[in-house]
Amino acid sequence: MANPTQTIVAFIGLGVMGLPMAKRLLAGGFDVVATDLSADAMEAFVEADGRTAKNIVEVAPVTDFVITMLPNGQIVRDALLGDMGFAMSLRTDTLIIAMSSSAPLETRGLREDLKILGLDLIDAPVSGGARRAEDGSLAIMVGGAPAMIEKARPLLKAMGSTVTATGEIGSGHAAKALNNYVSAAGLQAACEAILIGREFGIDPNVLTDVLNLSTGKNHSTEVKLKPFIIPENFTSGFAMALMAKDIETAASLARQLGKPEPGLEHAAALWKESLERVGKAADHTEIYSYLKVARQDR
């Protein structure tokens, strides 16, 4: 078990999710040294009384855990094993925790390459968005050896309210991608229902109440329709680019397993086209705007 006051955590990636997660580790008493390409992000972490390093290799020999919160698995691989990678500078008892979304089979390959260096890896992607990252209530799904998951549990509990072991390495990333597919399908269905109901003359707020009192209730109907979609402010805090990436990750996994699913393929195509139309900076709730325009064009 990790002792917070004596545990040094190297945290790589202080983005929208990474910065509040690193702050939660600080609040839990861990000694966190963070790095990011953004000088503003580094400064924000220093203002929270955290330590930063332009080159994380500086602290590699004394690091107990490495957490990566980076855009994709290739960037994680480059950070650890690329030309500027620092994995070879780590002690063999250092545990690496990959917490952003990545392709599950690539995660398995990365672990095999790290094993050559005597290092272990678990994948622990999160669900909940920036707001839950800030209050430490993320849902965390973890793949890897049970002993390594238990070793990391104190850190994970500092960032999330639930930690669910999902199986072998890569299963956390698979579960995250599949979760987001189901979430996206529920959001798409809710948006389409609102659009059809509006056309028929049903107040969207009333229809939302009906859904939430009936079997149509899902996460999107409960927490996204009234605050973000019906008023069309689209400020939920989770990017469409990330949602589209996760859905494609799920679809790609199904293809690699030789079992593509038609609903998943359709969703991947829909979110890809939506992303191209509304732009990478868009919130994922702007799928409503895309569906609205597409409906008008028909």
Results as ranks from 00 to 15, higher is better:
53 A>N: 05
6 Q>S: 11
12 I>K: 06
158 A>H: 06
72 N>Y: 03
177 A>P: 08
296 Q>A: 15
212 N>F: 07
144 G>F: 00
242 L>H: 14
148 M>T: 11
49 D>T: 13
259 K>V: 10
284 H>S: 04
165 A>Y: 01
120 D>S: 06
128 G>P: 15
199 E>K: 14
45 F>C: 13
21 M>T: 05
130 A>E: 15
282 A>P: 09
147 A>L: 09
113 D>H: 01
107 T>Y: 00
42 M>F: 13
142 V>Y: 00
226 K>C: 10
107 T>E: 04
17 M>T: 04
23 K>L: 13
39 A>S: 15
172 G>F: 02
192 E>V: 11
25 L>P: 02
223 V>P: 08
257 L>E: 13
285 T>C: 09
275 L>F: 01
158 A>P: 08
190 A>L: 02
120 D>F: 00
272 K>A: 11
226 K>G: 07
221 T>N: 08
124 A>F: 07
244 A>T: 15
203 D>K: 10
64 D>F: 03
275 L>I: 14
172 G>Q: 05
95 L>K: 03
197 G>K: 00
290 Y>D: 07
32 V>M: 08
123 D>P: 01
161 S>E: 15
242 L>S: 10
227 P>G: 08
163 V>E: 13
46 V>L: 11
241 A>Y: 06
152 A>M: 06
47 E>Q: 14
105 L>I: 14
173 H>K: 09
203 D>E: 11
91 R>W: 00
120 D>Y: 01
176 K>W: 00
165 A>I: 02
140 I>D: 03
261 E>V: 14
172 G>I: 01
210 V>N: 03
138 L>A: 15
228 F>A: 12
169 I>N: 04
106 E>I: 06
174 A>P: 04
37 L>H: 07
205 N>T: 12
271 W>L: 15
